[in-house]
């Protein structure tokens, strides 16, 4: 790379100035807009917050009876004795009632199973043995053998020799590429 000449430098600064949008007026922005300080969250935080919120909504609905059952909500499905019949155990009956209402509401919203969320549309682990091949960690070729010391899979004896000369920590990196490394917590 040639050393920057003053002329070059100036041209580059010129370019930077044209590219820089910080000093360009942005009339479409609301001048009073103040974003909240902690709005940047990673996926893990968002997911855990969402699930916590979901759980708490379920819990409060189950306990507080915030949802009042409608008139048609009084149907019993046969597995449950009607509330009048279970006179002494009133508390349990109300509990069951509110759960019933909740379930019915849920059924009304989602006809086909549970709600679709970011987490539950993730594909499940593979159950097909046809896809359970072992590949050499070093070369990616088929890897029928496993080194008991490093747990690396390898293709043939030449690769095995290579494995045995790897520096400390390197086998762990290879395992990490396959997601089989040990995580110390």
């Amino acid at each position: 790379m040639p050393p920057p000449t003053p002329a070059n430098d100036e041209a580059h600064q010129q370019l930077l100035n044209t590219l820089d949008i910080s000093h360009v007026p942005k009339p479409f922005r609301n001048p009073h807009w103040k974003p909240s300080q902690r709005r940047n969250k990673n996926l893990k935080q968002i997911v855990s917050e969402a699930s916590r919120k979901e759980a708490s909504v379920m819990a409060t609905q189950a306990n507080s009876g915030a949802t009042t059952p409608g008139t048609s909500g009084m149907v019993t499905d046969g597995t449950q004795t009607p509330a009048e019949g279970a006179g002494p155990n009133l508390s349990q009956a109300t509990q069951n009632l509110s759960t019933l209402v909740l379930e019915k509401n849920a059924r009304a919203t989602f006809q086909t199973g549970p709600a679709v969320t970011y987490t539950n549309i993730e594909s499940a682990p593979s159950f097909n043995p046809a896809y359970r091949h072992h590949y050499c960690d070093i070369t990616g070729l088929s890897g029928p053998y496993t080194d008991p010391k490093t747990r690396l899979r390898y293709h043939d004896k030449e690769i095995f020799k290579v494995i045995r000369t790897l520096a400390q920590g390197v086998p762990e990196n290879y395992l990490e590429a396959r997601g089989a490394h040990t995580i110390l917590k």
Binding site: E122, S123, S126, Y131
Partner: peptide, 21 residues
């Protein structure tokens, strides 16, 4: 090896079923 991962995620240590599955 790299484009194969979407068919066999286990290659890269992703514990999910592949696209075909």
């Amino acid at each position: 090896r790299v484009p194969e991962v979407v068919f066999q995620p286990s290659i890269a240590g992703l514990d999910q079923a592949g696209l075909i599955e």
